[in-house]
Amino acid sequence: MRRYRLLAVSVLGVAGILLGVLFVGNINGNLVYFLTPHEALAQKADFEDGRRFQIGGLVQDGSVVTTDEGLRFVVVSGPAEVPVAYRGSPAQLFRPGIGVVMEGAWDGDTFRSDTMIIKHDENYQPPDSAEGEPGDGAP
């Protein structure tokens, strides 16, 4: 019984420390699943060319251009915008105005990406509904 209590207390202790590190320490920002275009531009010095990370934002209306290897478009959040060169075929739901999380690295001022993840919102409406346009509430 004594040994068991010791085990329980140590397990609790380890769990407590882990949770503390998780919430307070933020583990060098590794918990942040993606950076917004604003943060990505502000922290550009931390991510030298070639270091991979993820940018999440909305696909700017009218910015999508098809290229030989994929697409070029601009990811925005508020006033900040990042030009993205995406290599590959677009995801099924890709369209101007939708949320995307792009994985890749800086190449000069362009974000060169090879992985696209669509971030849709939590609003579900039939096609003829006027409520909520695509992309509302996305990052």
Binding site: L31, V32, Y33, F34, G56, V101, I117, K119, H120, D121, E122, N123, Y124, Q125, P126, S129, G132, P139
Partner: peptide, 19 residues
């Protein structure tokens, strides 16, 4: 946290955002 998974639609403080 920032996630690609959408936030709750039904089990949330505000009214459900679904048809």
């Amino acid at each position: 946290w920032r996630a690609v998974h959408q936030p709750p639609t039904v089990l949330k403080p505000a009214a459900p955002t679904i048809d």
